[in-house]
Computed example of a mutant assay.
Amino acid sequence: MSTISDTSRYWQQWADNVLEGQQLPDAIALEILHSDNESLLPLLQAAYTIRRRFFGRGVWLHVIRSAKSGLCPEDCSYCSQSASASSDITTYPLETVASIVEGAREAQSRQAIRYCIVTSGRMPVEHDLEVICDAVSQIKATMPLQICTSLGMLDAAKVKRLKEAGVDRYNHNLETSAAHYGNICSTHSYEDRLRTARMVKDAGMELCSGGLLGMGESLQDRVELASSLRELDTDSVPLNFLHPRQGTQLENLQPMAAPDALRALAMFRFMLPSKELRIAGGRELILGPLQALGLYPANSIFTKGYLTTDGQGFEEDKRMIESAGFHIAEIVDA
Rank of each mutant, 00 (worst) to 15 (best):
W11Y: 05
A15P: 07
G21Q: 01
D26N: 15
I32H: 09
I32W: 07
E38H: 04
L40I: 03
L40T: 03
L43A: 02
Q45L: 06
Q45A: 10
A47W: 03
Y48W: 00
I50D: 05
F55V: 06
R57G: 02
S77N: 05
Y78R: 04
C79S: 01
S80N: 08
S86E: 05
D88N: 12
L94A: 14
V97C: 04
S99D: 13
I100M: 12
G103H: 13
V118D: 09
S120I: 03
G121N: 04
V125A: 11
H127S: 01
A135N: 02
Q138G: 02
Q138F: 02
L145G: 01
L145F: 04
G152D: 06
K163F: 00
Y170C: 12
N171L: 08
L174S: 14
S177W: 03
G182K: 08
E191G: 04
L194T: 05
S209W: 01
G210M: 12
L212I: 14
M215P: 10
R230W: 00
E231W: 12
L232E: 10
P238L: 10
L239M: 11
N240G: 06
H243P: 01
Q246S: 07
Q246G: 00
G247P: 06
T248A: 06
A258P: 08
A258F: 08
P259F: 13
L262Y: 01
F268C: 01
F270T: 13
F270R: 14
M271Y: 13
K275V: 11
K275W: 09
K275N: 14
E276D: 14
E276R: 10
G282V: 14
R283W: 10
L290G: 02
Q291N: 14
Y296R: 12
P297S: 14
A298L: 10
T309D: 01
T309E: 00
G311D: 11
F326P: 00
E330L: 08
A334K: 15
